[in-house]
Computed example of a mutant assay.
Amino acid sequence: MFRGSMVAMVTPMHEDGAVDWDALGRLVEFHVNQGSDAIVAVGTTGESATLDYDEHCQVMRRVVEFAAGRLPVIGGTGANSTWEAIKLTRCAMEGGCDAALLVTPYYNKPTQEGLYLHFKAVADAVPIPQILYNVPGRTACDILPETVERLAEIPNIVAIKEAQGTVQRPREIIERCGDRLDVYSGDDGNAREIILAGGKGVISVSANVAPALMHAMCMAALDGKREEAEAIDARLAALHKALFVESNPIPVKWAVAQLGLVGTAIRLPMTPLSEHHHETVRQAMILAGVLE
């Protein structure tokens, strides 16, 4: 349904922790102008864990308003309570989002049957297109390929963001599900390989900082231009790594601030990027050509 570089966009904040709506508008314009293929609002990188329900819904709605139909908006609506996930997903639909991104329920460690029934319940309750999101390194919950294959039979479950950490996992899902389910990388470092293997794109942290390059890399890979995709990705390799020197979104929020688009404020328990990492991230941005 979507393809290319879908930016997992940061949520800008004032020093007191309030959402910076002016900066949010600037970010959306930046991504429209720089070629991002879609915006994911209030995902992990958007600090979904520390925004309350009303803020969550308002950010999704405002991103839709700022985008004004110029690129798709995907709302992050996952929760470890099925009821809460339904409520957030309904909010995304009513706010005009084109799809919802639902992370696996974290902390409570459901069974594979529980995962199937959780995602089915959300899909049955809210008709918006839905993207599964698997990131066991954060959630302590891994949705297995056979469960994904079952969920692919549900019409409005259209894709999965796979961030299990290997290339083999998304390849297996592609083999199992074929055209019934789009597969997106959830790791910038392996996005090129996954797209060349049949994936449709990446939900990207690096695209916050280098959206034009991420778009170009994805388009080259989608067109089967392996050498071109590899050359672009080589410019981005240091950035992919540097944006995880501390937990996401700490480094990327600092990096976007260096572009003059947002401030450096971040909500506890996250803290601003440690000073000894500043030069590492700055040099990666220089190598990518986004900072002088």
Rank of each mutant, 00 (worst) to 15 (best):
I174G: 02
V135E: 00
G114N: 02
I173H: 03
I131R: 00
P155N: 05
A123C: 08
E153I: 04
V167M: 10
Y133Q: 04
V167A: 10
T111L: 03
V126K: 04
E113A: 13
I143A: 03
I173T: 07
K161T: 07
R171I: 15
I157H: 10
C141L: 02
K120W: 09
G165D: 00
P127M: 08
C141F: 05
E162L: 05
A140K: 04
C141Y: 01
E146I: 06
G165Y: 10
P110G: 10
F119C: 02
A125S: 14
L132V: 10
A121R: 13
Q164E: 13
N156S: 11
A159S: 14
T111A: 02
P136F: 10
E146Q: 09
V158S: 05
E113L: 09
N134G: 07
I157A: 11
P136Y: 10
F119M: 03
P129I: 13
L151M: 08
A125I: 09
P145W: 00
K120P: 12
P170S: 04
K161W: 03
K161L: 01
P145K: 00
I131P: 03
Y133P: 05
I160A: 01
P110I: 10
Q168G: 15
I154R: 12
N134M: 06
I174P: 08
I128P: 06
V126S: 06
I157G: 14
P129V: 13
I154C: 14
L144C: 07
V158M: 05
Q130Y: 07
D142H: 12
V148P: 04
A159Y: 11
D124I: 11
N134V: 13
R138T: 12
A152F: 07
D142S: 06
K120A: 14
I173M: 07
Q164T: 15
D124V: 08
L117M: 11
L144G: 03
P170R: 01
G165S: 04
P110D: 03
I143C: 14
I143M: 15
I160W: 12
Q112N: 08
V126Q: 09
R150G: 06
I160N: 01
P127N: 11
L144V: 14
E149I: 03
E113V: 09
R150D: 06
Q168H: 15
R169V: 15
G114A: 00
L132R: 01
I154T: 15
A121G: 14
G165I: 13
I173R: 02
H118P: 05
Y116S: 00
E162F: 10
Q112T: 12
L151N: 05
V158L: 03
I173C: 05
E172H: 10
K161E: 04
G165L: 10
G137A: 11
T111H: 08
R171D: 05
